[in-house]
C-alpha cells in the first residue's frame, strides 16, 4: 500500500538519537526505505527523491515524507530541568500503528492486561472522563481520567488513585500525563512515538520525562517494557489487524470515548495508512 497525503504530511520518529551510529544506517517508514547518514550531530535522510526534512527534537530523530502543515509538536515538559528523560528502547510490533495509539488511550484494559500493576480485577470501573478536540492546535485531549492502580509506576510503594490526561498530537504520536508517586502536584509524561513501517507493522518508541529520583534508569525502562510487552501480545492478536473505521465493525462503550474521538479525528483527516479498507463507501 502506498501512503496517502494525510499520512505523508506528518512528522514521524525514526529512533532515539543515541541509537544512530556515525555514518550510514537504514530505516523504513510508511513502506519506504530511508538511508540515514549521521555526521557528528548532523543528519541527512534520503529515500528516492530529494533529501527529506530532518528534526532532532526531544532526543529523537524525526522526518517526514510529505509537507506537514505544522512543526513537530511542542513538548514543554522537555524544557523542565528536574525531569529525567528516559528512552525505553524500540520494540517492533506486528500491528497497525493506529492500534498501538488506540490501545495506549484505553483505560479499561488495565485490570485485565496489566493485572495488579496498572489495575486490579476487583476495581475495573472506568470513571467518567472528558474528551475534546482542540482545533486551534489540532490535538485530542482526554482529561479528568482516574483509575485505581496497585503499582502505578516503578517507584510506587502501594496502590493509588492515579490521575491521567491523554494528549494525541498526531495520528501516530501520543502522550499521557500521570500523577507521579513522588510529586502529586505535577505530571509525569509518558510518550509513545510510533514509527509505522508497514500498515500492519510498527516500531514503538516509548519515551518518558519523569519526576523520580528513586528508581534507576534500568528500573524505569524495565517497568515500561514489562507494560509494553503485556500490550504487545494483545495488539498482535487483534482482528482485524488494521484499524476499522467503518461504522458497525466494532462497538464502543462509554469507557471508549477517547477511542471514538480518535477514530472520528482520523476519518476527518482522511487517514488511510493502517486503516482497514472500507466497503461502505461508494
Amino acid at each position: 500500500m502506498t501512503a496517502e497525503p494525510a499520512a505523508l504530511d506528518q512528522w514521524y520518529v525514526l529512533g532515539a538519537i543515541g541509537d544512530f551510529p556515525q555514518g550510514q544506517s537504514s530505516r523504513r517508514l510508511l513502506g519506504t526505505n530511508l538511508a540515514v547518514t549521521r555526521a557528528g550531530d548532523r543528519f541527512t535522510i534520503e529515500s528516492n527523491g530529494p533529501p527529506a526534512a530532518v528534526r532532532t527534537d526531544y532526543g529523537h530523530l524525526w522526518t517526514t515524507l510529505g509537507t506537514p502543515a505544522r512543526p513537530v509538536f511542542d513538548l514543554p515538559e522537555s524544557r523542565e530541568s528536574d525531569r529525567r528523560a528516559v528512552y525505553c528502547g524500540a520494540v517492533t510490533v506486528r500491528a497497525s500503528g493506529l492500534r498501538l495509539i488506540e490501545n495506549f488511550l484505553d483505560l479499561a484494559h488495565f485490570p485485565y492486561v496489566h493485572t495488579d500493576i496498572l489495575g486490579t480485577e476487583a476495581r475495573p470501573e472506568v470513571a467518567k472522563y472528558e474528551v475534546e478536540q482542540r482545533r486551534d492546535v489540532d490535538e485530542l485531549w482526554a482529561t479528568k481520567c482516574e483509575f485505581f492502580q496497585p503499582k502505578a509506576a516503578a517507584a510506587s510503594e502501594g496502590g493509588q488513585i492515579s490521575r491521567y490526561m491523554y494528549r494525541v498530537v498526531s495520528p501516530f504520536n501520543v502522550m499521557l500525563y500521570k500523577t507521579p508517586p513522588a510529586a502529586p502536584d505535577r505530571w509525569d509524561v509518558i510518550a509513545l512515538f510510533v514509527q509505522p513501517v508497514e500498515p500492519d507493522l510498527s516500531i514503538a518508541h516509548p519515551y518518558m520525562l519523569v519526576i523520580d529520583d528513586i528508581s534507576t534508569d534500568a528500573e524505569l525502562i524495565g517497568f515500561q517494557q514489562m507494560i509494553f510487552l503485556q500490550d504487545k501480545i494483545v495488539l498482535e492478536n487483534q482482528r482485524p489487524k488494521l484499524l476499522p473505521l467503518q461504522p458497525g465493525r466494532e462497538t464502543p462503550t462509554r469507557a471508549d470515548l477517547s477511542s471514538v474521538l480518535y477514530r472520528r479525528w482520523l476519518k476527518e483527516k482522511q487517514l488511510r495508512y493502517g486503516v482497514e479498507e472500507r466497503t461502505d463507501l461508494a
Binding site: 543515541g18 541509537d19 528502547g89 534507576t216 534508569d217 534500568a218 528500573e219 525502562i221 524495565g222
Partner: peptide, 11 residues
C-alpha cells in the same frame, strides 16, 4: 532483583 537494561548498547 536488580534491573539491568540490556537494550543494544546499554550496560
Amino acid at each position: 532483583r536488580r534491573a539491568v537494561d540490556l537494550y543494544p548498547g546499554a550496560a
